[in-house]
Each structure stands twice: as C-alpha cells, then as structure tokens.
Computed example of a mutant assay.
Amino acid sequence: MVGEPWTMLVIRELLYGNRAIIDIAAGVPGMSTGLLVKRLKKLEADGVVVLHRREAELTDAGRELAEIIESLGSWGARRLPPPRHGDLDPGLLLRDIARQVDRSVLPARTVSIHFRFTESPGPRWWWLMLSRTLATPTIHDPRVPQAMRIDCTLGALAHVWLGRVDWLDALRDKSIIVTGPRTAVRQAITWLGSSRFSSDKTLSAGE
C-alpha cells in the first residue's frame, strides 16, 4: 500500500501538515503533479487520506504511519552516508529547517535570515522568514526586518543541520559566517538548531 515510489514521501509531507497539493508537490521535487494526484487517489481508496478538491488530509490510519516515518528517518541518520554535493538543494534544505523550527523561541513579529550560499545548484540568495506563526523559505526579499545574514556553502549548512558538525565548530572554522547584532550567533543556534534526525540526537536516543 505504501511501498510504491514516492508514496512514503507524500505521506511524510502530509504528516508535516502540508495539505494543499501544490505544497505537497513542493516537498517532493521530481514528482509530476499528475503522478502525485494518482498516488493520492490510490491512498484515498486505501483509506489513508481524504481528498478535498485541491487538498488532502490524512485519516486516522494515515496518521498512524508517523511512527514508521520517524523510525525510517532515525535509521537513515545512523546508517546512511553524508549527502553528496550533487544531492543538495537549497530550497529543500531550508524547507526542512523551516518545518522543524521551534516556533516558541521565535519573535512575535516576522523577521528574516538572509542566507548567501557561496555555491549552489539553484539560487544562491535565500531568505528564511520566521515568527511564532510562520516559518518559510523564499528566494524573494520579504522586506521584513533582517535578524542576521548567514554566509556559507550549502554543504556546510547541511552538515550542521544533520548534526555531523557542531554549530560552534562551523563558526570557529568560518565555514559558516553569521553577521548581525551581538545576539545573532546565539539566535542562529537557538532558532535553527539541528534536525531531530541529526546524528547526535539519534545516536544518543538509540545507541
């Protein structure tokens, strides 16, 4: 039922709260909209999702798959090699960071972090808009107060996010450079942190 190509990734996006088909598609690049709709209809027939025009929602049976998705993420963090340069995509990385941010530590009013990647297969300038009700990346300057600027390679940010390199070590060796007010470095570490599937968290929990 869930073993067909793309299906688990579609379920992952639904578990993250993405209901609109356009938002689900953004989290699964390379999957055509037609195939996405086909998979959603199959999942609906199997009782895993309910379709509402251009949106989809998990049923109770679908939400029960969360434990499986989490287990696969933890397994991957422990067992899979680091991503290769060609595997990295700035939009996907920042999207993953945005949806795992702890919004309770963010400011009430929206601010942005300006990311300037020194190398990237896509746009090199990105903004991450953050507030207690919002966390989303964009390639367009959102024209909101900028909390800091982060200059780095895409690989450096990915390694910190995956817990393979500590934030402080990356800052010391200048593979990540944070520019802004005195509190910027502390805010960057607190706001962005690392993935819940990061190596350190996963190993401490499972080994």
Results as ranks from 00 to 15, higher is better:
15 L>D: 01
16 Y>K: 12
16 Y>E: 09
17 G>H: 04
20 A>S: 01
22 I>L: 09
23 D>W: 01
23 D>Q: 08
24 I>Q: 02
26 A>Y: 02
27 G>I: 04
32 S>M: 03
32 S>G: 15
33 T>C: 00
34 G>H: 10
34 G>E: 09
36 L>G: 06
40 L>R: 06
41 K>C: 04
42 K>F: 08
43 L>I: 12
44 E>C: 07
44 E>S: 12
45 A>W: 05
48 V>Q: 03
50 V>N: 10
50 V>R: 15
51 L>E: 01
51 L>K: 07
52 H>F: 13
55 E>Q: 12
56 A>W: 07
56 A>P: 11
57 E>N: 11
58 L>Y: 05
61 A>G: 00
61 A>N: 07
63 R>S: 03
64 E>Q: 09
66 A>L: 11
66 A>M: 05
67 E>Q: 06
68 I>W: 05
68 I>Y: 07
68 I>D: 01
70 E>D: 11
72 L>M: 14
72 L>R: 14
73 G>F: 04
73 G>P: 01
74 S>V: 08
74 S>L: 15
75 W>F: 12
76 G>Q: 12
76 G>I: 08
77 A>H: 04
77 A>L: 05
77 A>I: 07
78 R>F: 04
79 R>K: 11
80 L>G: 00
81 P>E: 07
81 P>D: 08
81 P>K: 11
82 P>F: 04
82 P>D: 09
82 P>K: 12
83 P>M: 01
83 P>G: 03
88 L>V: 04
89 D>M: 03
90 P>E: 05
92 L>E: 05
92 L>M: 13
92 L>S: 08
92 L>T: 01
93 L>S: 07
93 L>H: 08
93 L>E: 02
93 L>P: 03
94 L>N: 04
95 R>T: 13
96 D>K: 05
96 D>R: 13
